[in-house]
Amino acid sequence: MNPAPESKPDRRPPYQHAADELRREIMAGRFKPGEQLPSYRELQERFGIANMTARSALNVLRDEGLVYTIHGRGSFVADTDATGEYSAEYTAPAWYLAGKKGHQGEQAGEGKPDDTEAAGTTLTEVLTALRSEIRTLSADLQELRGEVDELKAQNRQPSGETS
């Protein structure tokens, strides 16, 4: 892991350091879209971190939409669109966008809000939508459980009885 500058110690957690370094490498093209990232064990050795810390680092990148994971296979870099930009689901962290003025949208001069504001809004909207979807799925699950209980009760009744 790269040491923090002497003048200002970095107090971020180790998983964030690892996620930042992997993000930099992906954005620089070291890892291409569809390419597999190092395993948890390799990340442990490279960054001197624990297994759960390596998992947390990849979770950060997954939550941003920069990588995806296939259970039992590993983590892979997300695809880019025709312009070489990551998909619409990718939201870079605000600190990253702050250092990359013109990275998304500003070049086109479309009158969009600055990147850090757009990134925050996008993340908030995504989280709100996910919470709503979870509530809906939870209600559906409860309804299905009720139906299953009714069916079980019907199957337990002798064949001649009806409710």
Rank of each mutant, 00 (worst) to 15 (best):
A153R: 08
L141I: 04
T128Q: 13
L58T: 14
L137V: 01
P158T: 08
F47K: 01
A92I: 06
H103T: 04
L66G: 09
Y96T: 09
Q142N: 11
E6N: 03
L151R: 13
D115L: 08
Q142G: 14
L144K: 15
H17E: 11
E89A: 15
R131I: 06
L151K: 11
R23Y: 01
R12A: 11
I70R: 13
Q157S: 13
Q44P: 00
A94N: 08
E125K: 15
L127V: 05
K112G: 03
G111L: 04
R30Q: 08
S87R: 14
A153S: 14
Y86K: 10
E35N: 03
A118T: 05
P5H: 01
L43W: 00
A98E: 15
P113F: 06
H71G: 03
D10I: 10
P14D: 07
T91S: 15
M27D: 11
Q44V: 01
H103C: 10
R30M: 05
K101W: 06
Q36V: 01
L137C: 05
D81C: 06
G111A: 06
P33H: 00
L97T: 07
A28Y: 00
P9S: 03
Y86N: 06
A139T: 12
D149C: 04
R62P: 00
E45H: 02
Q16I: 05
D149H: 09
N155E: 14
G74P: 09
A19K: 05
N2F: 00
K100L: 15
M52Q: 05
A119D: 09
G99T: 13
